[in-house]
Design a protein around this nucleic acid. Structure first.
Lengths: 225, 225, 225, 225
DNA sequence: AATGAATGAGTTTTCATTCAT
DNA sequence: TATGAATGAAAACTCATTCAT
């Protein structure tokens, strides 16, 4: 019960707290400037700590970067877990998932920036992360289940691969956000506005749901219904 | 025809050639390492030219980067122009467009890398790019025309926004390639293989075409046809 | 016998033990890496103790270094004292001394490394070492006595300075060990092998003994005998 | 013929001259402070050049150090070559060689300091230097020849190994200089004075020559003469 | 006596860019 | 047009040492 008191008492000299502060600052810095553009000095400064602690706790700029990436992934997993789509009817579950996926990207520009940067470098900081794979398996399983349920009810087509679908759902939102600036330039419109984002959201949900409908020729779920 | 004229012409020729060499080297370097990771020294070296020429011809590393980006965009425009979808029946035209869009990304990893990098920096090198907008208007117009034609024939739904569709088509391929490494890690599969890419291609075409079908309840193009 | 006394004693014991652990670790570290190359962190770690204890017990890295040097000198003195050459006939005593001197260096690479490092810095840590001088006087006296005895018996030449001889005996071995690596490189041979060392040992003893022989022209001890 | 004029004209922008300046400054700095103690900043400053040129010309502090070592070795070789001992009678040649060896060390404290430092680090900068070996072979060959000549004339003993002798000659002087400070402390005398050095020089020459004399029992060269 | 947290002051190294020819 | 030499400014990283408990 007195843990908070204890931690409060320790105050400034709390290794765990220092680590957290550095991670938070690093995340912001890396998201804004990328791995190469980020400055260790600045990260420490904005964490209100000494630069050397970065090395003390994380070993190097690169390892700090890796730690930030891990944290970011852990965060989405957490959110996804909280969705609990299992109990909803398939169509509703699917719409909710698409919406969540889109909203998460909309609300976490950091996430996109970090992923882009990491991919730009061959994803070398995610190395052999079996962890990452394990993190995401439940989500794929969930999608697979939802697809099957929907197909049995005649709501979805039968021949949809869960993994491809997941990538498509993610991609429809991700690309919009990650390339928002160049797309805005290309189309001569501000795609960063709340209005534009809302419109995109509607489009994405509609687009995916439409693609999931059973085909009228019976190749999909209808014939089985 | 006499010496001075000749040498003058050669001089220009060489200058043009040097510029091209630098641009090509820069494109490879920027695509691989990003703007910050790229080294002017390395670009000059791999172009077989003196570093100072970078400054002579382009003024600065940033301007060289901008020049590379422009060149890349000009290149796609060129390719898109060659598509000539106008004469095909709408469904065929649409499939061809989707396929082209996917293949272009598959064949030009440089393009994706450069775009990612540029977006990661707020697209500041595309600055006053009215040019970009003008470049792409014809494509959007073409999609719009194709959608209208298809809707009239009852092949496509009516309520599909050309711009959103374009972004979706691009995004379904782009995300797959730009995030190939992290996706591979997440799914514990090699999504970089030719097989995986071919599977993705089929999915994307099928996915978009399915989403374009008229809805059975007549909200789409059927009822209006 | 009761608790407080006991704990006090234990306290002292532990303190002494900690000091020893640190000294031993420091000696190894300094010998391997030199004063500048040695890391206080590493010394503490390899002693299994907290870094701060270094400062607690020794004040600073430099003072720790000084303490290590003192310990090393004390150690040879100890060994030299045990030699007891006084009872042997001069020639035998001399050979034994040369052999001991050589073997000591062969068996204590740490000693050489530390001396080299210290000399490389102007021997500033040996500061007011009257102690050092006192330590070594008996040895010089012993050599002087042995030389005199040998000369009287006609075994050694008369005109040999004890101090120069000592330096020569030491140098013939020391240089071989301290510069073993560069000498090996120069001669393209491995002078670090046991064989090579044994050969050197024989040479040194023979060399010195030969140099000590009386000269045939009577300038040495013989004529005067 | 106008090379000097040319080089003078080039003045400050002379790569070769800059290299030389840096090497000279580095040599002094490394000799005084050792590899670790030396500061790249200081080297550049004392060369009157920009610090980055060190990296431009030598790649790293370590490589600069290696270059200095090479230069130092090349220098002695040069001097040794100039000795031309081949023409002298063996005894004279040997005395001259011993004297030269001693004087060279006396006159080049840099050399000793650098060698000590390098040996302290396992001679890792001399790596696979076959060069070093080749440099020194002529000297060993010369000593061997001199020994043989002397033995034939009955001036030297027969059973003296050239390599061991070389190490002994070098060691008798080297140790005196390299450990001058600790020896001075041990003996409570200033061995750095010109007087002390002159005394040592006499001792070394005498010591070696005495050791080289044929043994009276005929094991050496006399019996063969 | 002992320890973990924190830091100030450097050090090597990097790199875009300019100078001189 | 072309080049090699040179540099200023900043970056990552290190390490002996002190603080707080």
């Amino acid at each position: 019960m007195d843990a908070p008191v204890e931690s409060a008492r320790i105050g400034k000299r709390d290794a765990e707290a220092s680590r957290r502060l550095l991670l938070r600052a690093a995340r912001a810095e890396f998201a804004t400037k990328g791995l190469m553009g980020a400055r260790v000095d600045e990260i420490a400064r904005s964490a209100g700590l000494n630069k050397q602690l970065v090395y003390h706790y994380f070993g190097s700029k690169d390892e700090l970067y890796g730690a930030v990436l891990e944290g970011v992934y852990a965060e989405i997993r957490e959110q996804e877990r909280a969705l609990s789509l299992g109990d909803l009817p398939p169509e509703e579950a699917m719409e909710k998932l698409i919406g969540f996926s889109f909203d998460y990207l909309a609300d976490h520009p950091d996430f996109i920036a970090l992923l882009n940067d990491e991919n730009g470098q061959g994803a070398r900081h995610l190395g052999g992360s079996r962890r990452l794979h394990e993190m995401h398996s439940p989500l794929i399983a969930l999608i697979r289940r939802t697809l099957r349920n929907g197909a049995e009810r005649g709501a979805f087509r039968r021949d949809m691969d869960a993994l491809q679908l997941y990538i498509s759902i993610a991609g429809l939102g991700y690309f919009y956000f990650s390339n928002n600036r160049t797309l805005s330039a290309i189309f001569g419109r501000d795609l960063g506005s709340a209005r534009a984002t809302a419109a995109r959201r509607r489009h994405v949900i509609d687009f995916v749901m439409a693609a999931l409908r059973p085909t009228s020729d019976g190749a999909g779920g209808v014939a089985d219904g």
